[in-house]
Each structure stands twice: as structure tokens, then as C-alpha cells.
């Protein structure tokens, strides 16, 4: 059994995901405890150079035309062979729509324990430790990373992607795999995001609404405030899932990443999946009746008033300030 730490590289259309750099940063920390090296495992097609700026000691590269686009079944087959054949101490994935499902299947297939939602790791006195965040970011849990091997899925927040970037390109070893069959899952193509009325990723003032907006009729109030401010309305997942705003207005893990001058978060709890999309905002003002809402950990200013009481008054005040 090796003391190495493996990181499964997540990439989409030629771009390595930030979470992979975060995972490499965590892997470096773990490797100081095990004395092993950090290997980035890259599955792709004509993508050998993708892992060139990862702070890994080496890259294990598996090339196949069937790996040009993500297919969970191919990943499961290849990684079960690779990890099962010579298990590293830990294998790190992103806790994402790619990494989470592969890690779950492999945990069951290889009978290897899985730690998910991991935010940071530590290595001291011969013990490897994890801290994971649960309950929408309201609770942290800590424990030993299971021995002798474990799979770990990483969430953002504990490390900056820069910490996982290296200056010299790691050595790449190409590994061949048995031909990949047609299998039970086939990638059929992409659906591009819909054409947008407004691109929230470049809008300087965003009025963001969450579950606290309570019902569809109240969305109009947020629209009115955004219009008065010369900005746009965006939302967290629950609002979009209700069909009150189009998916092009969703901020977060599977929506847009925004970095406005002002982000007015109304009735948004601040679950990690949402924060991932808005934490680069210059000024965040959060309004939520729950004093423990994690959004107050991200915002510079906050208030616990009811947003439905606040909105009409705020619209009038802004209108007055703008001279009518």
C-alpha cells in the first residue's frame, strides 16, 4: 500500500475546475503527514497538458477518445482498477456533479470509506484529520480520516485555488486502459445555457432573492428595487426551482458565478452551494430573519428585519435618494 495521495482532476471543455486546485492544496497537506507524494490522475483525450500547473509531484494520464467528455461509468471502471490495484492512502475528488458520484460508486465498489463535504485536512502526530461542513454550513464535524485508505470529496472554502498551483509542470506518465465498451451510460452532447436577457455575471448591482421571498408575487418587489437601483434580480436555487425566475438568474454551484459591486442578499440563508457563486462580491448586504444564517459570515453588513417589510420602504428610500 502506498502512502501517496491521489487527486482526480476534474475538467470540462479544456478547463480544469478550481476545486481540483483546492484538492491538490489539501493533498499537499496530507502528504506532509504520510511522507508520500501527490499524484494527479487525469482522464481525458488529447489533454495531457491540462494538469501542467497543478502543484503535484506527478501526473498519471489516461487517454482514450471515449474520455473526451465526462462519463461517470468510464471513470468508475478506470479508477476502480487504478485505485483498487495499488491503493493510495487517500484519493481526493471535488464534491461536485462529477466527483461526488464517482467517489460514491467507488466507495461501495472498493469497500473504501468515503468522507464527503471535506473543507480542510490536517496531518499531525501520525494522524490524518478531516473537517467537513454539514447542515448548510451551520455545523462543522471533525474526525480521523479512515485507515488504511479513504476517498475524500472536497468543498471550496478551506484552501484557495492558488495554493494548489505549481510553478513547474509535473512529470506525466501515460497509462493505458483496456478498451472502454459502450456501457450503460453514454454521453450524448451538451445543451448550451439559454440565451440571456441579462448577464448577471457582469451586472454591477444585484438584488438576490432566496427562499425568504416566500411567494412568486413578491418577486415583483425585488424586480422593482433592482430597476430603481439600475441593477438586476438574481436568486438562489429554491427560487429558480419554483419557476419564479429563469435558470439564467441562478447564482451558485450549478448556476452563475457573480462578482458585482453590490450584492443585496434578501432571504438567502447562505448555504455553501450558493456562497460559492457570490463570495467575490465587493460589498454584500444580507437581510435574513435567522440570526444564525451563514450568509452573515460572508456579508459585510446584515440585518434581521423581515425582507417583506423592508422592500417597500427601501424602494421608496432609493427612489428619493435618486431624486424621484
Amino acid at each position: 500500500m502506498s502512502q501517496d495521495i491521489h487527486v482526480i482532476v476534474e475538467h470540462l471543455r479544456g478547463q480544469v475546475a478550481d476545486i481540483t486546485y483546492v484538492a491538490v492544496a489539501a493533498a499537499r497537506r496530507l502528504a506532509t503527514g504520510t511522507g508520500g507524494g501527490v499524484a494527479a490522475v487525469l482522464l481525458g483525450h488529447d489533454g495531457e497538458t491540462l494538469a501542467g500547473d497543478l502543484a503535484a509531484d506527478r501526473v498519471v494520464y489516461i487517454d482514450d477518445p471515449a474520455l473526451a467528455d465526462f462519463n461517470p461509468e468510464h471513470y468508475n471502471v478506470i479508477l476502480a482498477d487504478l485505485i483498487g490495484g495499488d491503493p493510495p492512502r487517500c484519493v481526493l475528488f471535488g464534491d461536485t456533479s462529477m466527483g461526488a458520484e464517482v467517489a460514491g460508486v467507488l466507495s461501495a465498489r472498493l469497500s473504501m470509506p468515503l468522507v464527503s463535504r471535506c473543507r480542510s485536512v490536517d496531518a499531525a502526530n501520525g494522524r490524518l484529520r478531516f473537517i467537513s461542513q454539514i447542515c448548510g454550513g451551520k455545523i462543522l464535524v471533525e474526525g480521523d480520516i479512515p485507515e488504511p485508505n479513504a476517498l475524500i470529496t472536497m468543498v471550496p472554502g478551506g484552501y484557495k485555488p492558488e495554493q494548489g498551483r505549481g510553478e513547474t509542470a509535473p512529470e506525466v506518465t501515460r497509462t493505458s486502459v483496456s478498451p472502454l465498451g459502450s456501457g450503460r451510460v453514454a454521453f450524448a452532447g451538451y445543451q448550451e445555457p439559454k440565451a440571456e436577457d441579462i448577464d448577471i455575471s457582469t451586472t454591477p448591482i444585484l438584488v438576490a432573492i432566496g427562499r425568504g421571498i416566500a411567494n412568486e408575487d413578491n418577486v415583483e418587489l425585488a424586480e422593482e428595487l433592482a430597476e430603481t437601483l439600475g441593477g438586476a434580480v438574481c436568486a438562489s436555487r429554491p427560487v429558480v426551482d419554483q419557476g419564479w425566475l429563469p435558470t439564467t438568474r441562478m447564482v451558485g454551484k450549478s448556476g452563475k458565478r457573480v462578482k458585482p459591486d453590490v450584492y443585496l442578499a434578501l432571504g438567502i440563508s447562505g448555504a455553501p452551494e450558493h456562497v460559492e457563486g457570490m463570495s467575490d462580491s465587493d460589498l454584500t448586504i444580507a437581510v435574513n430573519t435567522d440570526p444564525e444564517a451563514p450568509i452573515f459570515d460572508v456579508a459585510q453588513y446584515g440585518s434581521e428585519v423581515d425582507l417583506l417589510d423592508l422592500l417597500p420602504v427601501l424602494i421608496e428610500r432609493v427612489r428619493a435618494a435618486k431624486g424621484g
Binding site: 466507495s107 461501495a108 469497500s111 473504501m112 470509506p113 468515503l114 468522507v115 478531516f130 461542513q133 454550513g137 451551520k138 455545523i139 462543522l140 464535524v141 471533525e142 474526525g143 480521523d144 480520516i145 479512515p146 479513504a150 454584500t284 444580507a286 451563514p294 452573515f296 459570515d297 460572508v298 456579508a299 459585510q300 453588513y301 446584515g302 440585518s303 434581521e304 428585519v305 423581515d306 417589510d309 423592508l310 420602504v313 427601501l314
Partner: peptide, 25 residues
């Protein structure tokens, strides 16, 4: 079998928390 053991659970402490604006709407 297959999950980690937790030996400590706590609420996050953040270095910076929002400055709260008090008062009515």
C-alpha cells in the same frame, strides 16, 4: 461500514461577521 467516525462537532467561528444594522425597517 464505509463512513467516517466523528469525534468533534462544532459551530463555525468566523473571523469576520457582518456588522449588524439594528432598528426597524
Amino acid at each position: 461500514t464505509g463512513g467516517p467516525m466523528v469525534d468533534s462537532m462544532f459551530k463555525p467561528e468566523t473571523a469576520e461577521r457582518a456588522t449588524m444594522i439594528t432598528g426597524d425597517e
